[in-house]
Nucleic acid binder design. Structure first.
Lengths: 337, 337
DNA sequence: TTGTAAGCGTTATCAG
DNA sequence: CTGATAACGCTTACAA
């Protein structure tokens, strides 16, 4: 029988010659134990290889320390970066991340939240998709905190963290115009998420305000391949755009590659390009893309901070919404800088 | 008091007019409940928003359903891809992934494993770093399964999944020679992990076998920036290499960008390049990189499969090691194809 | 098939 | 500061 399973506080207590409460207190921050008892407990625990059973602790405290990260497209650069930041900061806050991938099948956000409930997660952070109202309410009623990142949703209760997509998009128009561009285009995916659409609307509106028209093209999913197709479509038009704002850096990469290798266009001389997200590849010298930085670190810290706050009731009644500014990172894909 | 917390099996039992064991059995696959009882329980559970408490269940069954993923550099393309595959397949197997980021601070793999023990994880999959023998043994003794992916380690117990790095590297030499290259170089990071070093050794050995020498350069961490520096160093030598094998795609991307933009070299005409990992960017037309594909899907399925196997004792005694073949993906960065 | 009762490993309460 | 004792929500013999 190799499966001796785990050692319990009971065993540690016996070995240390104290009660099991003493053991418990030794591992509870801020409990009162004499230095001597503590020492003996710690010694016995170490010798036996004891580790507090967080399952049992969570059961008692009704607080598991688990935070669910609900996300699709984990392998995508922006998502992965956000994930890294979140796990790191959660760990710093003494929490542990449970990762739920919602790639396949729809309605899986709801399944993910049920999972979160089952594991009595202290909170769930949703990076993709949107939960059904009823299940979200169930989470909140159960005392679980909810954070929505870049998902527009109006139900009260969750903390919503969003960017100023609309305004940011407007700033690109200014940059393009300053670079002397006149024929603007917007390359979007068909995903139609609120942030993507806000960027489109903001860009179009700002251009209109300056009396300019925008050619809008939408295709596929928000990735490199879609960017190639979008370039194909936009650059074969009778009037080629001389500036294109891609809703996403990944789209921009695909777009630039096609513009250069297939249409032999020079960037930024013949075509100015801007993106959004500031993924790592945007800084690679093949792209050197001017783009908006997602403040991933701030997003993560705001989320974790809010989760760690004490006041549960006070908070849940007022509207909790954070609007973060996306900073433009100037690189070489727009003339002038 | 908004925190009504969670609804328990007790409450469901009362509402359904049955015992709490009946409720338990209804949610235990393969337990004997009459259709009628089941119906009433399910109805009550649904009305109340009941979800089995996995913490309590795990406590009883001594099986939490949690699998820890211990990983650093999560945002890196290859790691992120592996992560996606693992979470997906774990979920399919009815497990849930707990993500532990070991980016900061050393010895954090050990901390991560302690975490895994605390949450009574059924298994831990280690993608980065190596655990201390003693803590690894503690995991195994506690009945926790351990999987090491691409980490060479010889302690018995864990399942080790590795690639044929050494042999694969040899195949690159053949490809380079066939392309007419004569001055071979190997660009490595200073990380010195077993897989990285195996690629280096395999490449050098295969070249030697053909009577060729290899210029080896090592620098920094396994990322894009290091690739740039390596190019800087290798391409300013008196005798420029005409073929370089980069230990990693990320290194290769940095290398290619510098070779082209700073040294105005044409790939593959003046310089052939190969990489390893087959990250998404390798297929982007700016790189079009010939590289070895990490069989992430196979890695994940082998790992999950092994975790889900029944026989715990039989397995833990015999050497468990899997050697997977890295397939060469031919693209345009080597002449000839 | 069903209910009763005994745990699982903790923490919290309350005397001492 | 310490040690009993009662929960926490669940599963699982065991008996009915």
């Amino acid at each position: 029988m190799s499966t001796k399973v785990y050692v319990s506080a009971q065993e540690v207590a016996e070995k240390a010659g104290v009660s099991r409460s003493a053991v418990s207190r030794t591992f509870t921050p801020g409990a009162s134990v004499s230095a001597e008892t503590r020492r003996r407990v710690l010694e016995a625990a170490d010798a036996l290889g004891y580790h507090v059973n967080e399952l049992a602790r969570g059961l008692m405290r009704n607080e598991s320390g688990i935070v669910c990260l609900i996300v699709s497209d984990v392998a995508t650069p922006y998502r992965a970066a956000l994930l890294r930041e979140l796990t790191l900061q959660l760990q710093n806050a003494g929490k542990v991340a449970m990762l739920i991938n919602t790639d396949r099948s729809d309605g899986s956000v709801d399944r993910a939240l049920r999972q979160a409930i089952s594991y009595r997660a202290d909170a769930s952070i949703i990076l993709s998709g949107l939960p059904d109202k009823s299940i979200a309410q169930l989470c909140l009623r159960s005392g679980q905190r909810l954070v929505l990142i870049n998902r527009d949703d109006d139900q009260p209760g969750p903390l919503r963290i969003n960017l100023d997509d609309y305004e940011a998009a407007g700033r690109v128009v200014t940059a393009f115009v300053r670079a002397g561009c006149r024929r603007l285009a917007f390359a979007n995916s068909e995903a139609g998420t609120p942030s993507l659409m806000a960027r489109e609307r903001g860009f179009v509106a700002a251009a209109r305000a300056l009396g300019m028209d925008v050619t809008v093209e939408r295709y596929g999913w928000t990735g490199y391949e879609a960017g190639k197709v979008l370039a194909q479509r936009l650059l074969t038009r009778s009037e080629r755009p001389d500036a294109v704002f891609c809703a996403t850096d990944l789209l921009a990469c695909g777009f630039m590659d096609t513009a250069r290798h297939q249409f032999s266009m020079s960037i930024p001389n013949q075509l100015c390009v801007a993106g959004f997200d500031d993924i790592e590849q945007a800084s690679w010298s093949s792209y050197d893309l001017t783009t908006f930085a997602q403040p991933v670190s701030t997003i993560a810290s705001k989320a974790v901070e809010w989760l760690s706050e004490a006041q549960p009731e006070a908070v849940s009644n007022q509207e909790q919404s954070l609007r973060l500014r996306a900073e433009l990172v100037w690189r070489g894909s727009i003339r002038g800088g």
